[in-house]
Design a protein around this nucleic acid. Sequence first.
DNA 1: TCGCGGTATCAATGGACGTCGATATGTGCC
DNA 2: GGCACATATCGACGTCCATTGATACCGCGA
Lengths: 115, 115
Amino acid sequence: MTVDVATTAAGVRTPCGSTAPPPLAGDEARRRADLLKALADPVRLQLLSVIEESDGHEACVCDMTDRVDVAQPTVSHHLKVLVEAGLLHRERRGSWAWFRLDTARLAEIRAFLPG
Amino acid sequence: MTVDVATTAAGVRTPCGSTAPPPLAGDEARRRADLLKALADPVRLQLLSVIEESDGHEACVCDMTDRVDVAQPTVSHHLKVLVEAGLLHRERRGSWAWFRLDTARLAEIRAFLPG
DNA sequence: TCGCGGTATCAATGGACGTCGATATGTGCC
DNA sequence: GGCACATATCGACGTCCATTGATACCGCGA
C-alpha cells in the first residue's frame, strides 16, 4: 500500500508524477456521507418536496401519506430518518405532527458539495 | 390510502385542513436519489476531494489508492460508480487513468437540493 | 372514561451495497 | 514476445436498509 513518495507542501508526489493533496479526513467524510444518505432516497425527496412547496414551508404527516406510494409506517420511518439527520424539525399540534425544513443544515450540505 | 379530499389549484385539501402540492414525480425522485446515492459514501467523498483539490482539478488513480484506507479494487469500484453516475470523466493516458469532475452534473445536484 | 383518528414502534423479510482476494485486461518498455 | 506495472472485473461474503402488517401510543371529543 505504501510507496516511495516524497512529501511536498501541496501534498505528496505519486508514481504518475503529480502531487495530490491529503484527502478529506475519514471522520468528516463519514459525517457528510451520513447527511447525503439521508437525502438519497426517492420517497424522502418526495416528502421534502411536499414540505418545501407547502404554505409556510411546513406540512403535516397527513399531507404526505396520501401523496406517496408507500404505507403509513414507511412514511413515518422516513420522516424519522430525516429528523435524526437534522434535516427536518418535528412539532406536535394536537393530533397532527408537523414538519419543517432545517434550512441551515441543507445549506451546509450545499456548501460541502464538490464542484 | 385514498381519502375524501378536494382538489384545488395549489394542490389537495387534506384532513388536517392544509393544502399540499403534488409531490415530486416518482421517476424524477428516483433519478435524483440515484445521483445523491453516488455521492453518499465516505470513500467516494474522499476521492472527489482529492480530485477537486488537485492541480487542474484532475487526478489519476495512483493519486488516490495511497490516500484512502481501502484496497485498490475498492477504489476502482467507487470510481466506476462515480463515472456511471456522470459525476466523473475517465481518461486514459498511457498506463494511468485520469479523472476529472463533471461540474455541470454537480451543479445540477446543487440546484435540485431542497432548502 | 371510552372510543376514535392520527402517528409511532416493532419484528421480519428481501434486496442492495461495500469490501476484499484472486484474476483478467491493458499499456509501455526492453 | 515477454516482463513489469497500473487498472479493471469477478465472485463471494457480511452488513445495512427499505418496506410491510400488526400493534402500541397519543391527543381529542363525546
